[in-house]
Amino acid sequence: MSRGGQSRTRLLLVILIVTSLFLVTLDLRGVQLLDNLKQGTQNVLSPFQRISNSALSPIKNFFSDLSLLGRSGSQIEKLEKENASLKLELLERANADVQLDQLKNILDLAGTAGYKIVNAKVISQGSYQSFAQTVTIGSGSNAGIAQNMTVLSEYGIAGIVKEVYPNSALIQLAIDPGFRIGVRIVNSQQIGFLSGRGERSAVLQLLDNSTDINEGDVLMSRGSIANRPFVPGVPVGYITTVDNSAGTIAQSATVRYYTDFSKLSVLAVVVGGPKSNPGDALVPQKPQPIPTPTVTVFVTPTPTPSN
């Protein structure tokens, strides 16, 4: 490359680097223009996401099943085509059943606590490249959803509304490393903060260091002023390990969320909080132990032939 070409390349590189840094600075200073750009992009993308979601949802987890279709012979081909269409219908039905189950459980949860909710399907998963844990739902400000509203799954807390667009919303999941929620322990009523760390377990830090916490203790959300971002009384998770290391300023523990974040297909956004605090009404029941059948084997010794 000639000297002129090299200096032109360097100049271009410097200009682009300065532009990038300029954009970072603008964003950190909270310039509205960049938010509008993002919002415009999402408005354009959400119809594509919706179409892809409805087209792909029956087959997302069943590549292996579908790859076996279509082998040899006209009769077999015909039967296989029928079989494939029936399979697809069955998959769609199975998918709808799962969504229906999740929706029913969410409605039960919201109904018991008196939350006013808006249900929405998950239309897109967030990118892992940014180490963030987000999903996009197919309802937005047109359905009454606003920023910083609590989002529920069928088992409890799922996250909060981070960004809202007319027909979609970005949900920050509770496992996101930037997620924080105020919680209380059901039995002792101790309060603390729970922080996501990118996986289903989260870190609990208590404000009071004097009382004991135990494995299995259930955590509920504490609620925020005007119920935003968090409504009170939502099941969050249970303590799996307690950190008892000496010298720590605040007592901490590891918590497992009730929500299985790998299987989210329907979510509910709490658009109206309860008239009164539901307290412990939503504490999940402990699973009943299933009795294991005892198998008794009687062995009769065969008589040894006597000589």
């Binding site: 532009t19 990038s20 954009l23 970072v24 993002k38 992009t41 897109s124 990118s127 963030a132 987000t134």
Partner: peptide, 15 residues
């Protein structure tokens, strides 16, 4: 950076 699931400030991925 325009992707809504991008968690950093606008311009970080650009750089």
């Amino acid at each position: 950076d325009l992707s809504q699931s991008s968690s950093g400030p606008f311009g970080q991925w650009t750089l």
